[in-house]
Design a protein around this nucleic acid. Structure first.
Length: 689
RNA sequence: GCCACCGUAGCUCAGUGGUAGAGCACACCCUUGGUAAGGGUGAGGUCGUGGGUUCAAGCCCCAUCGGUGGCUCCA
């Protein structure tokens, strides 16, 4: 007879099996009414599932005790909404075959095959939503029933959906002895779906929902299999929460770096130039230059040297490095010289022949560089090295080109040409650990200075079942160990992910999310025992013998393009003074103060600050508004009063008030100091805000 | 690359087959105003591009380029 422990520690004993719904009723009518599901020994379950043995039980509602939405409650609501949507679509699109419909962090989706019938379009959303509203209004119970796996498979075979058969097959492989269905209403009469559950008690418990978007997907994520239509939606316990979520999405859209990039004129992508090729406009170039100055200073402190290398190199270079053979599909095609081309044409060489001969190395050409390492390696190899010189640290803001799939390109985060803040460290094996730490501390310093604390760390290891990796497995083991050890010293939680390594070595990546919730890899540190071997690199050791160096590839920003894309969103376009394209704007109240304002502007410019002056005949309110739209950190409002006392009235971005007056010279000095300290000392801070 | 949707003024968008619209931005004039939009006038578009249907196409059809959301991919 079950004795049931509740979250507050109290125990309820029953002399017969009960359901969670009954326990909730015993606790109180309010809870019974609010209950959506149950957590039995930590596992989410239906409210109606019988509890036969002793267990720990928590009743799941839409709301946590301490306030806010309960993730388990949302899970139940969203999973159930997915079912209701599937039923609605099945009614409206009789040819639709359901595949798989899970809840997500912010909603749910359902993958549906509409092969051989009318496709679903977003124009159909109102009709689908209306049908869903009807199903919800009918308030039908989600009714679970089970049957033994063999019998269940029989039933599915009779129904003839390969998708559901496959789902069932996988459930069996995962060890289920039975299969379960959920009917919305009466099994056998009402609509049903093969499903593990759990669900809310009835359709009426779905508070508020909305269909969001339409996308396509592949069955099991395999592009050679069926193409499916994926309908995304979201659901909440109340209309208010749904509205708040939609507002939040709207706000996020305003922080989107593509929107802000246009508004603040930071960058431009031009149809005529090419997809995924970023044009850095003057404002964006300032941000980039400031970041590059910042990192260059740190590199000098850490003993790096700087190099410049060209954007192309011979194909043979990339055959040796392995880039050309391993990543041919993701590179711009090779460049072949005029005379070679003419000779080949004379021979009647076809495009297919050319590709073939380039691959075999019978024809040489040049490649737009996909990575900087081969060039840096040849710099290292251009001179003999002693163990005393090691490590050699070569850095370059190196621009590379990769042929990304057209559908994947967008904004600054996924592009075809980008500049890495790259460096290659050639070191002795006994120096690897120390150098890795140096790289990681640099990454931490950069992220810390910019206030980016919301990132995760991934240690990418090789996939033991894949053949795409080059080099000796023993070297891989050593390198993977070095990465693990270094990551541990970071003091940040990290995950180890097999299959995420580069083809030449394991890596430590820094991953951040954009406003839409997509993850992007930024900084990366990679240990490489393989390229030194492929290029036969060596240094002379204390024993007067040649030794093989180890390479570390590292780029703390990753690429300037992607990093700044993420940085725009991080600051919502409101850059700190040292990064801001326009740092201060002088706003004269009227023409009467124009001369004083020009003097102030000249003083700011003379001190090396990026300042402008608004001499339009707008009123001060309008001047403030247009300056605010450009998110300028400081506004200096000057009128006759200020001119007389040689002071300025200061306004800082994001604070809708006059921060007070400071003397002209002090204002200039403060801003200079704020710039020089990269925001460690701010004027707004000293003005008490 | 695949699927869906979108492409109209510098920007944001309206315009369902019959002579291209609004707001903001821009130019000029009036206004000289102390902390998030003072008023007026004006200029600005071969409706992404190329074909087709039609008496007539921004609107319908096809192709193509580009964008967005996903999928797949990402050294």
């Amino acid at each position: 007879m079950p004795s049931i422990r509740l979250p507050d520690g109290s125990i309820r004993r029953y002399d017969r099996p009960v359901t969670a719904a009954e326990v909730a009723r015993d606790i109180g009518p309010g809870l019974a009414k609010a209950a959506l599901g149950a957590k039995v020994d930590g596992e989410l379950s239906d409210l109606a599932r019988p509890l036969e043995r002793d267990c720990a039980l928590a009743i799941v509602t839409a709301r946590k005790r301490e306030g806010g939405a309960d993730p388990d409650g949302l899970f139940l609501i969203r999973h159930s909404t997915a079912h209701v949507m599937a039923e609605a679509i099945s009614r409206l699109f009789p040819h639709a075959r359901l595949v798989y419909g899970p809840p997500l962090e912010t909603g749910f989706y359902y993958d549906i095959s509409v092969e051989g019938g009318r496709p679903i379009s977003s124009d159909d959303f109102p009709a689908i939503e209306a049908e869903m509203a009807r199903i919800i209004a009918e308030d039908r119970a989600f009714t679970r029933y089970e049957m033994p796996a063999a019998q269940g498979m029989e039933k599915l075979r009779a129904e003839g959906s390969k998708f559901k058969l496959d789902n069932a097959e996988r459930a069996r492989e995962a060890g289920s002895a039975s299969l379960s269905w959920y009917a919305t209403g009466v099994p056998g009469t009402d609509w049903e779906d093969l499903c593990r559950g759990p669900h809310v008690p009835s359709t009426g418990r779905i508070g508020a929902f909305k269909l969001m978007s339409l996308a396509s997907s592949y069955w099991k994520g395999d592009e050679s299999l069926d193409r499916l239509t994926r309908v995304y939606g979201t659901a909440f316990a109340t209309k208010e929460e749904l509205a708040a979520h939609l507002t939040q999405l709207d706000e996020a859209k305003k922080r989107d770096h593509r929107v802000l990039g246009r508004q603040l004129r930071l960058f431009h992508v031009d149809e005529m130039v090419g997809q995924g090729l970023i044009l850095w406009t003057p404002n964006g170039s300032i941000v980039r230059q400031e970041l590059q100055n910042f990192i260059s200073e740190e590199l000098r402190k850490q003993g790096y040297t700087q190099v410049f290398t060209p954007h192309i190199g011979k194909l043979d270079l990339y055959r040796t490095s392995g880039h050309f053979p391993y990543y041919r599909e993701s590179q711009y095609p090779p460049i072949v010289e005029h005379e070679q081309m003419a000779a080949l044409a004379k021979e009647g060489c076809s495009c297919a022949d050319l590709a073939n001969r380039l691959e075999k190395g019978e024809v040489d050409g040049y490649l737009l560089k996909p990575m900087n390492c081969p060039h840096h390696i040849r710099i290292f190899a251009s001179q003999p090295h002693s163990y005393r010189d090691m490590p050699v640290r070569l850095s370059e803001f190196g621009t590379v080109y990769r042929w990304e799939q057209s559908g994947e390109i967008g904004g600054m985060t996924r592009v075809r040409g980008f500049t890495q803040d790259d460096a290659h460290l050639f070191c002795r094996e006994d120096q690897v650990a120390q150098e890795l730490l140096g790289c990681l501390s640099l990454v931490k310093l950069i992220f810390g200075t910019l206030g980016m604390h919301d990132y995760r760390v991934r240690v990418g290891l090789r996939d033991p079942d894949s053949a795409k990796y080059v080099g000796d497995p023993r070297n891989w083991d050593k390198a993977e160990d070095a990465c693990r050890t270094a990551a541990r010293t970071l003091g940040v939680p990290f995950s180890e992910e097999p299959g995420e390594a580069a083809f030449y070595g394991p890596k430590i990546d820094f991953v951040v999310k954009d406003v839409i919730g997509r993850s992007w890899q930024l900084g990366t540190v990679q240990v490489d025992y393989n390229l030194p071997e492929r290029f036969d690199l060596s240094y002379i050791g204390a024993d007067n013998q040649a030794h093989r160096p180890v390479m570390i590839h590292r780029a703390p920003f990753g690429s300037m393009e992607r990093f700044i894309g993420c940085l725009i969103e991080h600051f919502a376009g409101a850059f700190p003074l040292w990064l801001a394209p326009e740092q201060a704007r002088v706003l004269p109240i009227s023409e009467k103060s124009a001369e004083y304002a020009r003097g102030l502007h000249a003083a700011l410019a003379g001190a090396g600050l990026r300042a402008s002056i608004d001499e339009s005949n707008d009123r001060i309110q309008a001047k403030i508004k247009s300056a605010s739209e450009m998110k300028i950190p400081y506004l200096a409002v000057v009128g006759p009063r200020d001119a007389e006392s040689r002071r300025v009235s200061v306004r800082a971005f994001g604070i809708e008030a006059n921060l007070g007056e400071v003397g002209l010279d002090e204002f200039v000095d403060r801003l200079v100091r704020e710039h020089r300290t990269r925001g460690a000392e701010t004027l707004r801070g000293t003005l008490g805000r």
